[in-house]
């Protein structure tokens, strides 16, 4: 049972990391990175390192998401565009 939980945590890390690259909307990418950080924190807790889990949940899921959101709203771009497009 605990192995299935662990494998699902690892699969969620992979899926959210893929979605962070796949989304065209930049805000969705940032939220997906936050979900990735949260599940990395769960993985640290499973590996019996609760110190690192608290630091990851505080910095990765909280602070860096806030900094990315303020950067997005300051730049004002909503979509990722390739070069050459308008």
């Amino acid at each position: 049972m605990i192995e299935i939980l662990h494998l699902s945590i690892l699969a969620t890390i992979l899926i959210s990391g893929f979605l962070a690259l796949w989304f065209r909307n930049l805000l969705s990418s940032v939220i997906s990175l936050s979900v990735l950080s949260l599940f990395v924190s769960l993985e640290f807790f499973y590996m019996q390192a609760p110190d690192v889990a608290i630091a990851e949940a505080g910095i990765g899921a909280g602070l860096s998401t806030a900094i990315y959101i303020v950067a997005l709203r300051a730049v004002g771009k909503k979509q990722f565009r390739k070069e050459g497009e308008h």
Binding site: P50, D51, I54, A55, A66, V70
Partner: peptide, 29 residues
Amino acid sequence: YVIVHGHLTPGGGFQGGAVVATFMAFLLV
């Protein structure tokens, strides 16, 4: 709580400080 109980429970000054700074990030956003 994480800062004050740093020598008893997991966590410490850095982790607890990051969590309290997340409080400020919530209000700022």
